[in-house]
Design a protein around this nucleic acid. Structure first.
Lengths: 345, 345
DNA sequence: TGTGGAAGCACAATCGTTTGAGCAAAAGGG
DNA sequence: CCCTTTTGCTCAAACGATTGTGCTTCCACA
């Protein structure tokens, strides 16, 4: 069979080639010119390295060079397609720049997030891309104050000097609202995600502005929910539709929220879109194939990841943070069947 | 503001506490007993370490201990919920055992997979969990022959001594077939994924067995497709339904395949389930909300990941490969609306 | 023959830990 | 008072790379 490629070290190579370790190192790293290694020696070293199947230990290099080539990524839930797409986009972009990704899943728990970030910095990651849980940022601000380049994605913090990337929640919501308003909807319920996070807040802001344009004030009792989950959407929709039967449209802040709402609506005997219109932020794959194809505000998820990666690598190259802190990625309104006109009864 | 927590090293702590580096190390690692460090000294070291915010360099530890605590994970497509769920399950389980995950995305390319695995071993990962592209295994067999514990997930290789985890494709398919047969279907088209991979082959095998039980031989011209993608499913379904109009049911090997098939069926004027039944392997979240809720063979994805992680950590603890090589995870047939009876015309 | 410079290497320190072995002082026993 | 233990620590060598500096040797030129 194949020969056992016993992990040989640089000194093995050096010994085999009858040169010093330093010479071997320089020969293999293309420093022959600079350090005057003769062409013959360089070639000899190269050949014996190949023969032994020598692969330099990245751990040792990391220690000596103080460069690990590692990138830390933290997301709240890797099973959620939104975050896994971001993770994919970041890893692939980073890999193209020679970085490997250490990926961690915080499970939506701030304490876990804290702990994971600490673990990652212990491993000397050169930079961090974090999709935070989004309610507390002290630990992130602390990282930011230290040397490690950090980019926040999605759940940003307003009024911060950290580098952040997120979708244009306000404009996206305004577009969705405009569509509802154009169809005659005035009493619109909101299924909220995690209140207090920037995506939630900005979407609410977008709603208020869109409503203000037509002289309507957002009724706070029409806002319900506290998670981006199916269950939260289901509960909130039931509450809202029960307490405010005159609601003609629902705006869901996530796809799971929307599915929960759909289920609740069906159970309460409201048909979509005949009796109730439904719009949601955050597109999902195959939304076209839903029982009622969902009108959504689609985020450019791959671009969120790419931008984050590029901001990170740029910071690593330049050694300083980019001037522009907040990066906003445009969204697209995708009109499907779930929105209908208000019957002029 | 906060004090700058300049990354202090062990020797900083030692100097500050007026002890030697070795003493400091042992005090902090709970080796006071074994190496006879007095309680007072141990406490002093502990306190100054806390004061300086000392965090040991994992890179240096890794070098010295030859233990990185790193796990490598390679998947073909992190944006695919199937693989991201596996990745999540593995990272979370591994994290609970003190390991961090280096995640890489091969993009479905064998060469990229090769390259990534090499990079990961260069970084001295202690073990690898790989969802291979599934057509070539030479590089994986090579890893297996070396010391690094390796677990293959999903796209296994038959007749191999590598440790592998996958779903019970054969039984799952038989159950799905039984359902179709019970409903009178005899002419069943197959939308294949990547031919030659074990999931594909075993599912075909399951089909043949189920058909054989009722005295039918699988017609090879009823099998089409070469990817697990939407497009492949769409193309194959069009082909099959055009060339064999008498087909009454389609078996799709992935959810994207099934969606493509659904689209093709609609375009060809076939209603589901009235004119055409549709079943697919590999459940998707929210299948309940599809236009026609899809009957699926659901895999226990989290369990696939957990099992892989446990096999890996077990191997790391015991220092030897488990006796059982192939691990088969049961699946569940979820009956929904997409299957109908054959009209007895 | 003596001197200067370049060519071609090797030595040794370093990155931050861990760990076996050794050494001085205190304690205990006769 | 001396010898032996025990206590409590320090020394120094690893782990596997990179890199500044120094040391030969050789050639050329005056």
């Amino acid at each position: 069979m194949g020969k056992a490629p016993a992990n040989s070290t640089l000194s093995d190579v050096a010994r085999e080639a009858n040169v010093s370790v330093s010479t071997a190192s320089r020969a293999l790293n293309g420093l022959a010119e600079k350090y005057r290694i003769s062409a013959s020696t360089a070639q000899l070293v190269q050949e014996t390295a190949d023969k032994l199947g020598f692969r330099p230990s990245q751990v040792a290099r990391s220690l000596r060079l103080k460069r690990t080539g590692l990138l830390g990524i933290v997301v709240p839930d890797l099973a959620n397609p939104f975050f896994s797409s971001i993770a994919r986009s970041v890893t692939v972009s980073a890999e193209a720049e020679g970085y490997s990704a250490l990926l961690a899943d915080s499970g939506g728990l701030v304490d876990k997030e804290r702990q994971l970030i600490e673990q990652l910095t212990d491993r000397s990651v050169e930079a961090l891309v974090v999709c935070p849980v989004g309610l507390e940022f002290d630990h992130l601000e602390k990282i930011h104050q230290q040397k490690v380049p950090l980019v926040i994605v999605d759940r940003c913090k307003s009024q911060s000097q950290m580098v952040q990337v997120t979708s244009d929640h306000t404009t996206g919501t305004q577009q969705a609202m405009q569509l509802l308003l154009d169809n005659g909807h005035r009493k619109i319920g909101v299924l909220q995600g995690i209140a207090g996070t920037l995506p939630c807040d900005q979407r609410l802001l977008g709603m208020k502005q869109a409503l203000a344009d037509v002289g309507v004030v957002l009724d706070p009792t029409l806002v319900d929910g506290d998670q981006f989950t199916y269950e939260s959407g289901y509960r909130s929709a039931r509450n809202l539709l029960t307490n405010h039967p005159s609601i003609t449209a629902l705006f869901a802040m996530s796809t799971p929220n929307a599915f929960g709402a759909y289920q609740a609506a069906i159970e309460l005997g409201r048909r979509v879109p005949e009796d109730l219109s439904l719009v949601c932020f955050d597109d999902v794959a195959f939304a076209d194939f839903m029982q009622v194809p969902l009108t959504t505000v689609a985020q450019d998820v791959p671009e969120l990841g790419r931008r984050a990666a590029s901001l990170v690598t740029q910071q690593l190259r330049d050694g300083k943070a980019p001037r522009q802190k907040m990066h906003t990625i445009p969204v697209t309104l995708l009109q499907r069947a779930s929105v209908g006109k208000v019957s002029s009864s």
